[in-house]
Design a protein around this nucleic acid. Structure first.
Lengths: 201, 201, 201, 201
DNA sequence: ATTTAAACGAGACGGTACGTCTGGTCTTGTA
DNA sequence: TACAAGACCAGACGTACCGTCTCGTTTAAAT
């Protein structure tokens, strides 16, 4: 359950408006603390204190620690793919890089494990997190279809499996050895396997 | 910090020995509760009660909830690959199935998310969990090398990437849509992409 | 260390004020439980439960079990002596009766032994308990001085010794045979010895 | 419940006899720790460790912490009164000094408060502690009777009240301001009041 | 000389209270 | 209405201590 909309439903006008500087301060404080002490050790009280506000103000905006962290970790939708559509190899590589770039962020790295845990206990949250990546997945599906039409990719490939492989490999790598991810070699290796794996014979 | 070894180092003889039935009862209770109420809701006190013992007895054996769950979830090393080595396609498929079978267990599914969260905050624990899968990874490496020597697999393929892809895809799938995993289709799709991805041209 | 003052120092205004009904409920529950199960068996959790609140609320107000019991046992300063000053014999008897009445209370009887034990380990607490009886002692001193001036009492008598004798005898009697205390005989015997003991020859 | 007798009941002979050095070491360790850290902080495990033995050996000899402390604090019966009977004033003063001397011991001072607390919860223990002082009380009674016969003391005086006053005053003083007790002035003051208090007119 | 019963060290065990911490809600007074 | 402050409920946390028990070993007295 979200608690967010300040002026959303209807009688927006009445009462004292929320101070947007507080929103920003809370998100900043959350991100900082995530990196400094990790998800588990992060406390709502600590966030409030560092943001120079109080717990009440947090819960007015986010209904739980998980929601707050989720928003602090993914400030904006990873903006799909900006590369102009070319051959599928380039498309795939771009997509892997986008994924990698998101996961490699210190904040995301700090937030992910805890978020993963909370998601399994809270389906709503899980949905919202998944939605963040929806655009990328849709884009992948579109370009995959085009590549199949062009004959570049064999027709049996299911996009869901590709998502599992790209997302999963990135997730696992960031959990185990994040430093590997940064080098281009990691992207090269994954890309090569996957491109060959889906190419038409 | 582990708390485990009762008679490990050497000066074993003295004192009342631990009752192994208690070890078993604790692990069983932990596994049951994991499945029933999940990692987050699982309480040391509840485990103790169901196991017919006390918190003290738990903490004498495992230094934290994370350690206990880790041991309850992976009672035994996933026993590497038992398939007789054949062509690399079969090897890879067997490996994927082994991985899938481990992750698909109700206990592991219940334990994983929380474990993932705790691992990032506790490097020791992370190491111990990773070690559980060491054998499988070594086996993969060996068979990959043989396949390269036989000319089945191109020489540039790094085994670490394959591990990232197999483990990661399984992890992500089990977190998002565990029911997909059970069907053979999921294994088929992943296997086909990866086998083609690493095969010599 | 006390934890008490909610609005003590000065910056009182802010925040939700403590609910005074909770203070009262806690003290009442403590007194009841003291009488029912005794100091040793009294548990902070049990007090909280009976008071219809939580341990947190207790510890916000009293820093330890000893502090709480101390306050529950001596809700108000034993209100000095109300008898109009007469001859010193009456004064002394009144004082002994006041002391006896305080110690004979079921709550005090239940609390005393544990309190005595804790006081030696905690000088602060000891001071606070002693302060409860400060008024009575001051009153005794004043009336003793007056009696000396009137020639009723010999001049060498130290009030501290009288306090030791009255308080000590009452304490010991309540610990050993509380039923003796209730009868007027006990007060008679003690009074007679002490009055004769301090009277001018 | 005591646990003591090693060779008491009948079949004394058999088995390994207790090592008397362990008895001594335990009592010494208990006395030391009482003075150093007090009754409440004293731990059976700590006693065992300092005595160079184990908890089992303690519980073989004493059934509880209270019993052990009781024996460590009062190693020998306060040996009644050794003064040759003279006038009752001297008798009383001797008795007060004996009482004072026992209570002023560092070990007794450290043990008393806790013991007092445990005694109220354990009637057996209370009886045993009281018995320690039985001889002194009997002696007091005898000499009081003699003094009454001699016409030194008025006949109405009850010995129990005198015990309350002497014991109580000493107990209270040792709890509140032990340093006062050491000076002869304290004994003088108490003695004078009590002697005058009981003397025949 | 052999049995035997008990003391011994070590430490696990059940049980229970402690005081602390956190998440999330509710209630003040003030702006 | 938002806000700062902080009390509130609920309940898990990990630690500590008590007194009991179960080992395997040692030691003296009884056979």
């Amino acid at each position: 359950m979200k608690a967010e909309p300040p002026a959303a439903d209807k009688g927006s006008g009445a009462g004292r408006p929320r101070d947007p500087r507080i929103d920003a301060a809370i998100l900043r404080a959350t991100a900082e603390l995530l990196v400094e002490i990790g998800y588990t050790n992060l406390t709502m009280a600590a966030v409030a204190e560092r943001a120079g506000t109080t717990k009440t103000a947090l819960y007015r905006r986010w209904s739980s620690k998980a929601e707050l962290v989720h928003e602090a970790a993914f400030p904006a939708t990873p903006s799909a793919i900006e590369t102009p559509p070319g051959d599928f190899g380039s498309d795939l590589r771009a997509m892997i890089e986008v994924t990698r770039d998101v996961f490699v962020t210190p904040v995301v790295r700090a937030a992910l494990p805890g978020l993963v845990a909370d998601m399994t206990a809270d389906a709503d949250l899980a949905g919202r997190v998944a939605a963040r990546f929806g655009d990328v997945i849709v884009a992948l599906r579109v370009r995959l279809d085009e590549a199949i039409k062009r004959g570049e990719v064999r027709s049996g490939v299911e996009p869901e499996r590709l998502v599992d492989l790209i997302g999963g490999a990135t997730l696992l790598a960031v959990l185990q050895s994040p430093e590997d991810l940064i080098s281009g070699d990691w992207v090269d290796g994954i890309t090569e396997i996957l491109v060959r794996g889906v190419s038409a014979p």
